[in-house]
Simulated scan of single mutants.
Amino acid sequence: MDLIEVLQHRYTAKAYNPDRRLPEEIVAQLMAALRFSPSSVNAQPWHFIVAGDEAGKARVAKGAAGPFAYNAPKILNASHVVLLCARTTLPPEHLQAVLDQEQADGRFAGEEAREGQRKTRAGYVALHEQAGDLGMWTQKQAYIALGFLLLAAGTLGVDATPMEGFDAEALDGAFGLTDKGLAPAVIVALGYHSDADFNAKLPKSRLADSVVFSRA
């Protein structure tokens, strides 16, 4: 299956088969898609909470209460669920950990290159801190990771459902996100759809090329 076929085939699942589990090798590939996602100045301003058992999914499902209860069955019946979180701050210790990892991975030819990367990243972080939009910036990076996860799932034949409909306070209570400097961005259910999934039978609908593209 080529890329266009994957893009045309993948869709947002509305109901999952609770009896079908994702193989561990598939889960590992999906997690790699998240870990290796790009981010601005390689800040990696995210954390991913993965639920692969009933207890873990039940914790995530605490965020699907009240007006968001319609999302609870997707979370509980999916094979795995990922809560993508954005960092609310990028403190020196996080930036240092990223820099040290880059050093360990051989990204710097010397101290000058290392220092240049440190200054560039710190400069971008400072700009967003001064503008008061650091949280918005990190959320944008989390959505880049979401795109990589959805494309990876489609390539691997895995159904996925991104969900913004959740109670952020309930998720904070379940996982202590605020104390960890995190904010929930999006929940993604992963698995295999059930026969009750009406969306699996519907054709994909997108605006025409002439509407969404123009030439510079």
Score class of each variant (00 low, 15 high):
G147N: 08
L146D: 00
I187V: 15
G154D: 12
E169S: 14
W137E: 03
T178S: 15
A152V: 10
I187A: 11
D167A: 12
M163I: 10
M136D: 03
A196Q: 14
D179Y: 03
V186Y: 09
E164V: 04
G181A: 09
L146A: 03
F166T: 05
F166I: 07
K140W: 02
T178C: 08
A189V: 02
V188D: 08
L150C: 06
Y143W: 05
E164D: 06
V188F: 04
A160C: 09
L156P: 02
L146F: 04
G135V: 07
T178F: 07
A174R: 12
G176A: 09
T161P: 04
G147C: 01
L150D: 12
G173I: 14
F166C: 07
A170V: 10
T155V: 09
D159H: 15
G154K: 05
T161G: 03
L151P: 00
M136W: 05
A174Y: 05
G191M: 11
L149T: 06
A160W: 02
L177T: 15
S194V: 04
A170T: 11
A168N: 07
H193P: 06
D167E: 13
A153D: 10
H193R: 15
M163D: 04
P184V: 08
G147K: 07
W137I: 00
T138Q: 04
Y143T: 00
K180T: 03
L151R: 00
L149E: 04
G181M: 06
A183R: 15
F175N: 12
G157T: 05
A142P: 01
A185E: 09
A152G: 02
M136V: 05
G173W: 12
F175W: 13
D197T: 13
F148I: 00
F166G: 08
L149D: 04
T155L: 01
D197I: 12
V186E: 14
L151N: 08
F148N: 06
M163V: 10
A168P: 09
F148K: 00
G165A: 14
A160M: 07
A196V: 10
D195I: 07
G176Y: 10
L151A: 03
V188M: 08
Y143F: 11
A183E: 15
I144C: 00
V158L: 05
L150V: 07
G154Q: 09
D195E: 15
P184H: 05
E164Q: 04
M136K: 03
D195K: 14
T161I: 03
D167T: 02
L182F: 05
G147A: 03
G176D: 13
D172S: 12
D172Y: 13
E169Y: 03
P162G: 06
D195H: 14
F166L: 09
T155H: 02
P162Y: 05
D167G: 12
